[in-house]
Design a protein around this nucleic acid. Structure first.
Lengths: 222, 222
DNA sequence: GGGTCAAATAAGTATATACATATTAGCCCA
DNA sequence: TGGGCTAATATGTATATACTTATTTGACCC
């Protein structure tokens, strides 16, 4: 009856789903489960921690572990490099720089990067020749001093040069104005999915809005 | 110099960011790091596993641990109950059932739930009286036999009755047609953020499209 | 009743240790 | 050269154990 931590997790999940452990109820403590399932408390701890990280259990010291009444599930979504994202869909990635100039930031850009002039880089990513998404990016000028984005997208340059910073993502939607419609090859007024991201390490680095061509979807597992 | 696993993780993260461990490079193995940092291999393992789960390291047995050249970061987003989501924004949640009938499913609904007649439930969630999002849901009839969604939203009913199933999420955008504009109190043609979700346990349970009022954003940490 | 403090509790973390397992490198041999 | 076996390696996991820490219960005192 000895179980590994994944088996313990699956058994716990089974009991949650079967309502052996109904929502709101406190479940046996780690020591008890360890005894029942024939493993050590450390193994049970690992299993329950895993479920808690997914939002399926709530754990508190001394308070024990319970099944949340109103669970807040946590989904994970992958954030690949745009070029790679396109390639994985079996399409030929393309890239065209549209704007690269220093100017006062938009409201969102200033909020993320501060006032002062910012480098504004707008580029179109294509998949098999068709517009895929517009990258509307504002950069802290000091970070990208002298970097040319004509050939390599800012997206890629950043990933390989200022990797692993903190980021915050935000999904939204907007209608295509004339310029956007032109760039993305869609009718004006089309609804477009947005993904904004602001990135910072010690100092703010960049704020970017990805505007996807109509019909594009971003998926997340759970 | 003895470190806990979070300190080990932070130190590893620092080295990645400082490019002490550049992209593509293999990092010292767990035993070496344990020796260097004054803790056991188990502690180092916990720390590096945590970073690997966030996409910041790639680990393979025998192959060691390396910093990915093209990292695929993993962001997590919270999926609360709609009512709770509204309440957390400091607004009064409201709910109105608009449609509840049996009919042939939409294309997406049939793809998720199979053919046959489906229960179609459309409801409006409001925040402080203003439209918040439209819940356009298709249900496997057997699962919700005899359940009344006039007072309790399908969202809440499902969370407390068929909790913890598997789900897949997908973001998109659409334009408001006349009916949607009416329901959400926005001009026709407005761009709306969509969040589709299909849920299944042993059998398919439900497919739902949440259509948010204009300007709504869904955030994710990273 | 209400406030303070100590004891009890359950999870969080660390240690030393051992064995399992995937993957690679190297060797032998046809 | 190439196929296949073996050994080496680094991570994955489990164990027993011990100490730490957040939180709550409850006793005590005013």
């Amino acid at each position: 009856m000895a179980m590994g931590w994944q088996e313990v997790r699956d058994e716990a999940l089974r009991r949650i789903r079967a309502r052996d452990w109904p929502p709101g109820a406190r479940i046996p403590d780690e020591a008890a489960l360890a005894g029942e399932l024939g493993c050590t408390r450390v193994t049970v701890n690992r299993a329950l921690r895993d479920l808690a990280e997914a939002g399926l259990l709530e754990r508190r010291r001394r308070g024990g572990t319970r099944v949340p009444l109103t669970p807040v599930r946590r989904a994970t979504l992958s954030i690949p490099i745009i070029r790679q994202d396109i390639a994985e869909r079996g399409q030929e990635p393309g890239y065209r720089l549209l704007i690269d100039r220093l100017e006062p930031g938009s409201a969102e850009a200033r909020a993320a990067l501060g006032d002062g002039p910012l480098r504004h880089v707008v580029a179109l990513h294509t998949a098999g020749g068709a517009p895929y998404c517009l990258e509307d990016r504002w950069l802290s000028p000091a970070v990208v001093e002298g970097v040319d984005f004509a050939e390599v997208s800012a997206n890629e340059w950043l990933v390989s040069h200022v990797t692993y910073a903190e980021a915050r993502l935000s999904f939204g939607a907007m209608t295509a104005d004339a310029a956007l419609a032109e760039a993305l090859g869609c009718p004006p007024g089309a609804a477009l999915l947005l993904l904004d991201r602001s990135t910072r390490a010690e100092t703010p680095i960049t704020w970017v809005r990805l505007i996807y061509a109509p019909g594009h979807r971003v998926d997340a597992g759970l």
